[in-house]
Computed example of a mutant assay.
Amino acid sequence: MNPVSMESSKMPQNVQAFLAGKRIAVAGVSRKGDTAASHILRKLLKSGYEAIPVNPHAQELEGQPCYPSLEAIPGGVHAVMIATNPDVSLSVVEECAVLGIRHVWFHRSFGDGSISVEALGACEAFGIDAIIGGCPLMFLEPVDIVHKCIRWFGQRNGNVPA
C-alpha cells in the first residue's frame, strides 16, 4: 500500500507506479540543501516515504543516513529519482539495471535537467520505466501553486508526464 493517499484518477500511470513503493532513493541531494533533489527528498519524507539520499560526499543529509551509491543502501529501493548532472545520470541508470530497479524519474523543470540521451537509451535497453521531466512535487499533495502551474504548462508542452 502507498504510504500516502493519492487521487489516482488525476495521476499518470507511470507516476503512480513510481510512487507505489515505500522506498525511493534520491540521487543528487546536495550538502547545501538548495537543489531540486533536496526539495524532492524533503517532500517525499513529509509525504510518508522512506526517502534515501544518495551523494558520494556525505554521510547524512536532511537528518537521513546518506549513501555513496544505490548499491550501498541496505534493503534496496523500489525507485530512484535522478536529480543529478546529466553527465552522471547514465551511471545511475546502469547501477539501477544491475540492482534490478525498474523505475527511475529524471528531474527536469526547465532545460535538460538530469536527462541525457545515453541514460534514456540505457533505460530502454535495460527495460527500466523512465519518467522524463517534472518531479514528485508536481503530484504529491498538497501541491503548491508554483508546481501546479509548472505541471499544467509542462503537460501541455510534453515536458511533464500527463
Results as ranks from 00 to 15, higher is better:
3 P>W: 12
3 P>F: 11
5 S>C: 14
6 M>E: 07
6 M>D: 00
7 E>Q: 15
11 M>F: 13
12 P>G: 08
13 Q>P: 06
15 V>S: 02
15 V>L: 11
17 A>H: 12
18 F>K: 00
19 L>V: 10
21 G>N: 05
21 G>D: 02
22 K>H: 13
24 I>D: 02
31 R>N: 13
37 A>G: 04
38 S>E: 07
40 I>L: 05
42 R>N: 14
43 K>S: 05
44 L>R: 03
47 S>E: 08
48 G>P: 07
50 E>I: 12
52 I>S: 01
52 I>P: 06
58 A>Y: 07
58 A>W: 04
63 G>Y: 15
64 Q>G: 05
67 Y>N: 06
68 P>H: 13
69 S>R: 07
69 S>C: 04
72 A>S: 13
75 G>P: 12
76 G>H: 02
76 G>F: 07
78 H>P: 07
83 A>Y: 02
88 V>Y: 09
88 V>E: 14
91 S>M: 10
94 E>D: 14
94 E>A: 06
96 C>P: 08
97 A>E: 03
98 V>A: 11
100 G>V: 11
101 I>G: 04
103 H>W: 09
104 V>D: 01
104 V>Q: 00
107 H>K: 11
107 H>W: 08
113 G>Q: 01
113 G>S: 09
117 V>Q: 11
117 V>H: 09
117 V>F: 09
118 E>S: 04
122 A>R: 04
126 F>D: 05
126 F>G: 01
128 I>S: 03
130 A>I: 04
133 G>S: 11
133 G>A: 01
135 C>E: 01
137 L>V: 01
141 E>T: 10
143 V>F: 03
151 R>N: 01
151 R>K: 11
154 G>L: 10
157 N>A: 14
158 G>F: 04
160 V>H: 00
160 V>Q: 00
